[in-house]
Write a protein that binds this DNA or RNA. Structure first.
Lengths: 142, 142
DNA sequence: CGGGATCCATGTGGATACTG
DNA sequence: CAGTATCCACATGGATCCCG
């Protein structure tokens, strides 16, 4: 029994982490944002999201449905028609996700620059004492 | 060359998606939030985030450093001491991530309820005509 | 059209051991 | 302490075939 950390926890059993895990699904985020525009059919989503296989789309939609983020409505037409749409809960999540996309668009250049600089540093390895920023600070207590 | 979609794209080569992919790393999110509190040492992070192995932590920190979100500072003490901290860019991302955690905490109950309902529906399969919400709508054009 | 089932390649992540 | 390297098990995801 450690000093329990009540607020927001980083323990594996923390429910918040479960949600984060779901959000941490790159496909789920894209799907939610597409459905935020308008309800879509299975193959419509598949066609729009490049690199997403039918199997994974199917799986992802199922978990999104289970979590209460999307609804699945099947129309008994000749070739069956299925439409996926956001629930209010899903719409709420999608809205929360929007700033993230905005951030990504706004800062992609910074990230790419950082990557280039990092990779360059590694490529230019061979100098005498490559102490980039290794400060001579006071030793941290153990 | 298809009809290119300039605004926010769902193409695999879209840079925004690359960022989302990084964010879509459950460990990265947790690490960023912990570092937002204060700079931390390797094993401090490892100890706090339950279920995170040293290998994955190492990998994740490296990509976070490469993307310009965290800095790695090594102090040449006897047992080497390394401190990880957020860059301004990383801090900016962390702030953007905060509403997400808030949302997760606020809606975890809804999600759990949705899951329970969904699972119950599947377990209660056996009725005559289980057409829950299959509307008799007009057939969608092909 | 919208998937489920199957088979298989690969990536991801854990455990362990060893180094600076 | 802070990793890197290796080996290995399992989960993930693609490709394919088929059914309603």
């Amino acid at each position: 029994m450690q000093t329990d950390l009540p607020p927001n926890t980083y323990a594996a059993d923390c429910p918040t982490r479960q949600i984060l895990d779901r959000i941490a699904d790159k496909w789920a985020v894209l799907i939610l944002q597409l459905l935020a525009d308008e309800p879509q059919r299975f193959n419509a989503l598949r066609r729009k999201i490049q690199g997403l296989s039918q199997k994974v789309l199917s799986q992802t939609l199922k978990t999104l449905e289970r979590d209460g983020f999307v609804t699945r409505t099947a129309f008994p037409t000749v070739p069956v028609t299925v439409e996926y749409a956001l629930t209010p809960l899903g719409a709420s999540l999608a809205e929360t996700l929007t700033p993230l996309s905005r951030w990504a668009e706004a800062h992609i250049k910074d990230v790419e620059a950082a990557r280039a600089a990092f990779d360059h540093r590694r490529a230019t390895s061979g100098e005498g004492v490559p102490q980039g920023q290794t400060e001579s600070h006071a030793p941290v207590a153990l």
